[in-house]
Design a protein around this nucleic acid. Structure first.
Lengths: 144, 144
DNA sequence: GCACTATACGTGTATACACACATATATGTA
DNA sequence: TACATATATGTGTGTATACACGTATAGTGC
């Protein structure tokens, strides 16, 4: 079969963006009872997973999240206003080191079971092995 | 294998959002020479594909795009400012009928070969059959 | 015709995203 | 040490996203 002229149903960008919208809504709704949105949940979870005692620098965190540094700055502002994180400068005074607060960790742990429910919804749509395929594909798309 | 506790690398939402960011950037960069971003390109392409002579109503277009109606309102404002589309009310005066302008259609057609280059980049990362898998998976995630 | 309901749409608000540009600090080199 | 360069970060701007709420018009049953 030859390559078709443009059609929406073939466009990787349109399709992945549309799916991201729908999946995000599912996770947002699932997390609603604890007052977290999907992005903030991922942010807190990543900080929890990777930051050492002294915290993690913004650029390093952005790389881990596969997110533009300036986008992360704005997302961190939301988390900081909500007092889920604190930031301070390190020995290198250019660096901004980020850590969860106790309140942030509690919020995260409250959210985990709700995350699981949303994730199970996805599995219900895709099956475990298809989810596995999806993760492999999205991972490859997120690599350099 | 039992279900793991939360980890970023397992989260469908995190992974699909991250991939969407990266894929979007690739298409945005590819489309840059014609002054279109990925979302606006998809928008114009959908209007071109589905609208009849009299145009397509906003809610109907939103459903085709798998996008919230109010999001579409804002996205249309961008396209309207740029004079890529026009809108008018129909017999039912609640309805807002949307059509491409000549300028919008020209912009779209200029963009098509650049879209193809971006799409080929994705194929280079995933292979044709994997792209096919991705489209099938994202399609299932975008269904009710 | 009138009240009720359903449908189509917009606006206020908040978050998410990233490019272009600017600033502050550190590091390397003459 | 002084200057050039590299690194870490923030800000201005514009687009994308969607929920809560409100308005205008159409349809329905009496």
């Amino acid at each position: 079969m030859t390559i078709q002229p443009y059609a929406q149903h073939n466009c990787a960008c349109f399709n992945i963006r549309r799916a991201a919208r729908h999946v995000t809504q599912a996770y947002d709704h699932a997390l609603k009872p604890v007052g977290l949105q999907a992005t903030q949940f991922s942010l807190l979870a990543m900080i929890d997973g990777v930051s050492s005692e002294k915290g993690i620098a913004l650029t390093e965190l952005a790389a881990r999240l596969g997110m533009d540094r300036t986008t992360l700055t704005r997302n961190l502002a939301v988390a900081e206003r909500a007092k889920w994180i604190v930031t301070r400068s390190g020995k290198d005074r250019r660096e901004r080191l980020i850590k969860l607060t106790l309140s942030g960790r509690r919020k995260l742990n409250k959210a985990r079971p709700l995350w699981k429910l949303a994730q199970e919804q996805v599995v219900k749509k895709l099956s475990v092995s298809s989810l596995s395929d999806l993760l492999a594909l999205t991972h490859r798309l997120s690599a350099d």
